[in-house]
Simulated scan of single mutants.
Amino acid sequence: MTQVMEKNLEYYLNLNYTLLVNHIVDESGSYYYGKIVELDGCHSTADTVEELIKDLEEVKKAHIEIKLEFGDLIPEPKEMPSGNIMLRMPKTLHWKLANEAEREGISLNQYILYKLSSK
């Protein structure tokens, strides 16, 4: 018999949510802006990264507490993709891309990555 884990405040606080931090310099000065990607509305600003992370932990806790109180859905972090994909393509396209990669002197994988990221 498997035991079902209770998804309480402690459960959510221990999940590895994605933290996005940007250094901002604008007319108001220099500061850090951060957000928890999976939790809409969980964002803050601070003068230092350390202060920002502390603030975001408090915001995350309050956000989750409110969601739990009202029985709202709380998104969980997704696993990072492996970076590997299987891709099927027409032979003529494969031939064209392989030739272009050879002309550039790079591997087919590098060339396809370049083409995808330059759009």
Rank of each mutant, 00 (worst) to 15 (best):
E58V: 05
R88W: 06
N99C: 04
M80A: 08
K115P: 01
S82N: 10
A62P: 04
G41M: 13
K91C: 02
G83Q: 03
V49T: 10
L52H: 00
H43V: 06
K119G: 05
L39N: 00
M1H: 09
G83E: 06
T2R: 13
A46C: 11
L15Q: 11
K60W: 00
Y114E: 15
K96E: 07
N84R: 15
E76C: 06
L19V: 15
N99S: 09
L116W: 09
V21K: 07
L116Q: 07
E50V: 14
F70A: 02
L39R: 00
T48E: 13
G71D: 08
Y111C: 05
N109D: 12
E58I: 05
Y114N: 14
G105S: 06
K61L: 01
E27R: 15
T18H: 08
F70M: 07
V21H: 05
D26V: 12
S82F: 08
K61H: 06
Q3M: 12
K60L: 01
L116M: 15
I112M: 11
A62C: 10
W95G: 04
L39M: 01
E102F: 06
M1I: 12
N84C: 09
G105W: 07
T18L: 08
I66K: 14
Q3W: 10
P75S: 10
E38T: 11
N99W: 03
D72R: 06
L13Y: 03
E6F: 10
M80K: 11
